[in-house]
Design a protein around this nucleic acid. Structure first.
Length: 479
RNA sequence: GGCGGUAUCGUCUAGGGGACUAGGACGCGGCCCUCUCAAGGCUGUAACACGGGUUCGAAUCCCGUUACCGCUACCA
């Protein structure tokens, strides 16, 4: 049974890089019928906050990346971490180190000043056993260090292939601080063993932790998981994505009107390709297409333009029953209509969304575009007015004609409107646009919208005529 | 500095020795459609980091260089 985990530290919001790591873990588990677990690495109490933990839950849930079993809080496992550290001490794989941080810092600085790379010299490992016992018993503060054996440590990474490190380049790492608290590498290994994790899929920044962790697995007598290290997500300047690139938290994109389906789709394509020319996919399609062969080792740049395009694709193709509630919420949030009003006109709202979804890039954009269809009065865009009502007297004449023609219509249907309005234009010796464009501004206040007849239908006879009347009193047209 | 990772259009990528005149997508430009805006269709722009090998043949394999990234803590 494949068991994977996403293990963020709750020191900020859910970052898009982290979200992609979570996505790949989730996809892998879903693909193989495995389990996707969540572990909050909150051992750094100073930096961890409950707010961050909630943001991570929210982000993952929003993306649809639901996890199995109870969330594991690393901080709750300290006793086991300590037990493992002491087991290592007893088996001889680790030793007590009485060097203080200050001494270590000084030696490190000294090595650096001589342009040498610092390695712990194992002086405490050379101490007489009896002396060690005596000092420890006397309560002398000390850490527990893992003794890195000779040789080299290698593994076959799912995305990078063979990776090998000479053990001589790995320092004897502290696994338990002098205050008895565990160090990250020990805690991770201890928890992953305990959680029976079979595949550790994480960010590239953990590559150099991996040999240390493999050594710990072996010393603890545990089976190794399969490792995969995903490349970084970069900003447009090629630097690792960070705050100064603007929105980096997945919550930011939610606020921007990006949908989770699009976000997942976009994130999945950063470092993974289903092969062929496949791009727009539902989550179900991503699961069935997912394979480790498609995983890329190269860092990729987060391109907001493409995310927006991706969002637009999902916006226009997704099932109405999932889209509608979201748009309704967004419209209500803009204040132009209430939820009650919208639910009372379900079919009408549906038509409106169908017409706008193909012209919007985000949910917020769509909600904003819907504004002119609500309310009693029209808000006129100054540029649209200036451009489309340039010749005031001609516009008045055309609008008068359009109003009369529309009012005379026996039935309020598109075919009849088209006949009437095109007829009007022809009679004036004008192109259809000369009638439609001014009318569009009259009805909606803006220069771009769905087709005129769709708009007329949406607004209805009474409101359409009333808006024409209202426009005739607009200062720009009132002679 | 040491160690590790990576390198195809501006960006996401296809490519796994001959099918490459290097394909698709985003973006950008043009055309078509058209009452506007979108969507859609057609089309243009633009890349194998560099240098050596291996091979009859290299974007694909190997080595080196360069650049970028990561790690090098009693952080995670």
């Amino acid at each position: 049974m494949v068991r994977v985990r996403f293990a963020p530290s709750p020191t900020g919001y859910l970052h898009v890089g982290g979200a992609r790591t979570a996505l790949f873990n989730w996809l892998y588990a879903r693909k193989l019928g495995g389990q996707f677990l969540l572990r909050i690495e909150d051992t750094d109490k100073a930096r961890s906050t409950d707010e961050s933990t909630r943001a991570i839950y929210h982000g993952l849930t929003w993306l649809g990346l639901t996890w199995e079993e109870d969330v594991v809080h690393q901080g709750a496992n300290v006793a086991r971490h300590q037990r493992d550290a002491h087991a290592l001490l007893e088996s001889g794989a680790a030793y007590r180190c009485f060097c203080t941080s200050a001494e270590l810092d000084a030696r490190r600085a000294d090595a650096e000043s001589r342009k040498e790379s610092f390695r712990y010299d194992r002086r405490c490992d050379l101490l007489d056993a009896a002396e060690v016992e005596q000092r420890a018993a006397a309560g002398a503060p000390h850490t527990i260090r893992f003794r890195v054996p000779d040789g080299h440590t290698a593994w076959t990474d799912m995305v990078h292939g063979e990776i090998s490190f000479p053990n001589k380049d790995i320092d004897d790492l502290v696994i338990l601080r002098s205050d008895g608290t565990p160090i990250y590498n020990l805690a991770v290994v201890s928890d992953d063993i305990d959680m029976r994790i079979t595949h550790v899929l994480r960010g590239e920044d953990h590559i150099s932790n991996t040999p240390k962790q493999i050594l710990l697995y072996r010393a603890l007598g545990a089976a190794l998981p399969v490792f995969a290290h995903f490349p970084n997500v970069l900003g447009t300047d090629g630097k690792k994505l960070s705050k100064r690139h603007g929105a980096t938290a997945v919550g930011d994109y939610e606020g921007l009107g990006i949908m989770p389906e699009a976000m997942c789709n976009f994130l999945a394509l950063l470092g993974w390709s289903p092969g062929g020319d496949r791009e727009v996919m539902t989550q179900a399609e991503m699961i069935s297409l997912f394979s480790e062969e498609g995983l890329l080792a190269k860092a990729s740049v987060f391109d907001m333009k493409k995310l927006e395009w991706m969002n637009a694709q999902h916006l226009m193709h997704m099932p109405m029953e999932v889209l509608t509630p979201r748009v309704v919420d967004a419209i209500v949030a803009t204040g132009v209509a209430t939820a009650v009003e919208l639910s009372a006109n379900e079919a009408w709202v549906c038509t409106l969304i169908e017409l706008l979804r193909v012209r919007a890039r985000t949910i917020d954009d769509l909600a904003k575009q819907s504004a002119p269809y609500f309310g009693a009065t029209v808000t006129f865009d100054a540029d649209a007015v200036a451009k489309q009502w340039k010749d005031a007297s001609l516009t008045r004449k055309l609008l008068g004609g359009a109003r009369a023609a529309l009012e005379a219509l026996p039935t309020w249907d598109a075919a009849a409107m088209e006949l009437a309005l095109r007829g009007l234009a022809e009679a004036e010796g004008l192109g259809a646009g000369k009638v439609m464009q001014p009318l569009r501004v009259v009805l909606l206040g803006v220069a771009a919208s769905p087709g005129m007849f769709d708009v007329l239908l949406l607004l209805g006879r009474d409101r359409s005529l009333a808006r024409i009347d209202a426009a005739l009193t607009h200062p720009h047209l009132a002679a």
